[in-house]
């Protein structure tokens, strides 16, 4: 009755709402946790102590060098055709503007193709991207590459429509990348509303002028940590089922959903198993990654350090797409392993969450998956997730404790059973 016992404890028993309450305590105390910030390091130290206090084994911190970027003060003022202050969020790793800002005419485009067609018009201007939201994976390239593509055609700065599935005038930040040999220009996200408005104004042939000020600064890399805790395996302690989420966030809202929820249901999975006095045959290892938002920096360094033991990893799991009511598990692995995962998920029939989808993935576990280790991720309502993603709206209010209970139950059953099977998952 192991699966039933986990479900009962997580959803109906004394552990219900625990992951939500632990997370609320952390994010209400510390706030958002940007890579390189004191907030993140305080959160890591508090979580490390709480993991030790909760009786988990082999609790330790693994050092990582992480990027340190600060946004500083920032603003965008439309000065023509009317005075209008726009909400913006600078993008991670962006350079700042001169103190007086950059004042320039705007060129609005809907795609990179349109930018190429109108390249001659872009020189000396601020490029505004008004790309449609198709999916996160499709649309995010404008956020990541928008500055580079604009700089290639001589733009002074870029303003990018937020990559969001819905907007109530909310700018959404995120990471962006410069390219060697291409001039670095300041870049920020604007709201869906303002991107559409400027597109409409420009379509009438009206000139738009914007003053953009950004106080962003890139500092040298700083010290941080991946946070690790375990339930040591009883028969094959050297073999690992890795359960994870990331502890860092952007510097807006509370980072409660991305990825406080994922990190804390991962912790909850081990807590549930421990509370029930269970000890799987192989080790359940919780890893709370640092600096995921800057491109899986903590996970990359963990992989370099631990890949020598890759043959001992049965399954890597990451929750980084929300902890709303799960629709199932995304899984990447061989057909044989998938068949086993389908059997494991059938244990969750009491919650009516049994589906195994394709494309198990996560920024932090992809290193392992690409090297052949089976990987799983939690799937829920992604549309809702991207309402709040990287915005001031990412707070505890965006989470639901009851849905987190269910997500934690799924996470615990899957991780425990795979860790306790007589054999590792086949590759």
């Amino acid at each position: 009755d192991v699966a039933k016992a986990i479900i009962n404890l997580a959803v109906y028993g004394r552990a219900q709402n625990r992951s939500y309450e632990r997370l609320a305590h952390l994010v209400d105390t510390v706030g958002p946790r940007l890579s390189g910030s004191k907030n993140l390091e305080e959160a890591i130290q508090l979580t490390y102590q709480s993991l030790k206090d909760s009786g988990l084994e082999n609790v330790h911190l693994e050092p990582v060098k992480v990027p340190h970027w600060e946004r500083g003060e920032e603003s965008a003022m439309m000065v023509k055709p009317r005075l209008y202050k726009m909400a913006i969020l600078g993008l991670g790793s962006s350079i700042g503007t001169p103190a007086e800002g950059i004042t320039a005419e705007v060129l609005v485009v809907n795609s990179f193709d349109e930018l190429q067609r109108r390249a001659i018009e872009a020189k000396g201007k601020i490029v505004v991207y008004n790309q449609p939201y198709i999916s996160y994976a499709t649309s995010v390239k404008y956020r990541v590459q928008g500055a580079v593509e604009a700089a290639k055609v001589g733009a002074l700065a870029s303003l990018i429509r937020s990559v969001a599935s819905f907007s109530i005038y909310s700018p959404h930040t995120g990471n962006q990348k410069y390219q060697d040999g291409v001039t670095k220009i300041p870049t920020a996200c604007i709201t869906v509303e303002d991107a559409e408005m400027m597109s409409r104004i420009a379509s009438h042939g009206t000139t738009i002028v914007v003053n953009l000020k950004m106080g962003a600064v890139n500092y040298p890399d700083t010290d941080s940590f991946n946070t690790v805790a375990e339930i040591t395996g009883s028969r094959h302690p050297e073999q690992i089922v890795l359960v994870s989420g990331h502890l860092d966030s952007w510097d807006v809202g509370q980072g409660a959903m991305d990825d406080g929820g994922g990190a804390f249901i991962s912790w909850e999975a081990l807590s549930l198993i421990k509370d029930l006095g269970l000890r799987p045959k192989r080790t359940l290892r919780l890893v709370l990654w640092t600096a995921e938002e800057q491109g899986g920096v903590g996970a990359s360094q963990y992989y370099q350090l631990h890949k020598v033991n890759i043959s001992q990893y049965s399954l890597v799991m990451e929750s980084d797409a929300g902890t709303y009511l799960p629709t199932g598990l995304q899984f990447t692995g061989s057909d044989k392993a998938r068949s086993i995962m389908e059997e494991v998920m059938s244990l969750l029939r009491p919650l009516n969450i049994t589906q195994v989808f394709t494309k198990g993935e996560g920024e932090d576990i992809n290193f392992w998956i690409q090297a052949g280790v089976p990987g799983a991720s939690l799937l829920d309502d992604l549309n809702k997730y991207f309402f709040f993603h990287h915005s001031h709206g990412d707070t505890m209010t965006a989470l639901d404790p009851k849905q987190m209970n269910v997500a934690a139950a799924v996470w615990a059953v899957v991780s425990y059973v795979v860790a306790d099977l007589d054999e590792m998952l086949p590759r």
């Binding site: 059997e343 590792m424 086949p426």
Partner: peptide, 24 residues
């Protein structure tokens, strides 16, 4: 090679299926 060494299944799928059913 290292990846596959530790993961050669000894059990049949039927046996694994029965094993997992034991956790219901």
């Amino acid at each position: 090679k290292a990846i596959h060494k530790a993961s050669t299944p000894q059990k049949t799928f039927k046996e694994i299926q029965e094993e997992i059913a034991g956790y219901t």
